[in-house]
């Protein structure tokens, strides 16, 4: 912890980040890394995570807010600066969180829900073009292809974190320290590599 972090930067209006995906994808870990980075970079931060029934393969949402003084921990509709989706169609389900000019960071990983296999609404054909027609400001991440470079399919969330990190003025060292203090020691290196890959995505 550096000494600056106890001093909160003044005059910063509240901004929001939303992470969505499917239970088990590592959303809570990723959002904890973000929140810790915000705190150590000298901002007030609040973060809301959904537990309970959402873990059983349901949609998961984590909401993060930062600024000089954050009031509500919940993100108002249409205000998030960035919407990160660890799954291909989930960003569209939670489109209402994102500000119209906000950035969507979407992984191409598709997880087909049971309802699509047994019900009437199939898993839709969605590609980069479909997503761009909804989110003009989009970073589409070929996540599994990217993780092959580092040999760990579970690091998708950290690649997306890297992409998100370019949108905020937090020192890169703070991101890396948050990764080091949050993930298990044996996964630190692979996550740092994943973060770098994400940070260089366009």
């Amino acid at each position: 912890m550096n000494a600056d972090s106890d001093k909160i930067k003044s005059g910063v209006e509240t901004q929001s980040i939303v992470l969505v995906g499917v239970g088990g994808q590592g959303i809570l870990l990723a959002s904890e890394i973000i929140a810790r980075t915000i705190m150590t970079s000298g901002y007030d931060v609040k973060m809301n995570e959904i537990h309970g029934m959402a873990q059983r393969g349901g949609s998961v949402v984590a909401q993060i807010r930062l600024g000089s003084e954050v009031a509500s921990p919940l993100v108002p509709r249409g205000t998030a600066k960035v919407l990160v989706s660890l799954e291909r169609i989930e960003a569209m389900r939670f489109v209402d969180f994102l500000a119209p000019d906000g950035l969507a960071v979407v992984s191409d990983q598709a997880i087909i829900p049971v309802t699509a296999s047994v019900g009437s609404i199939p898993y839709p054909e969605v590609n980069e073009e479909t997503l761009r027609s909804v989110f003009p400001n989009l970073i589409y991440v070929h996540a599994l292809a990217q993780t092959e470079k580092i040999g760990n399919a579970k690091a998708v969330n950290t690649i997306l974190l890297g992409a998100l990190s370019t949108q905020f003025p937090f020192p890169v060292e703070n991101w890396k320290n948050s990764i080091k203090t949050t993930v298990k020691p044996k996964f630190v290196d692979v996550n740092l590599k994943a973060f770098e890959i994400g940070r260089n995505l366009k």
Binding site: G57, G78, V95, A99, P100, P113, I121, P124
Partner: peptide, 21 residues
């Protein structure tokens, strides 16, 4: 502030994703 994404009409029907066993 403008809050509505004008491109929402481009979103296809999405299968729900409730918690399951």
């Amino acid at each position: 502030a403008e809050k509505e994404n004008p491109n929402k009409k481009n979103i296809p029907a999405l299968p729900p994703r409730p918690p399951v066993l």
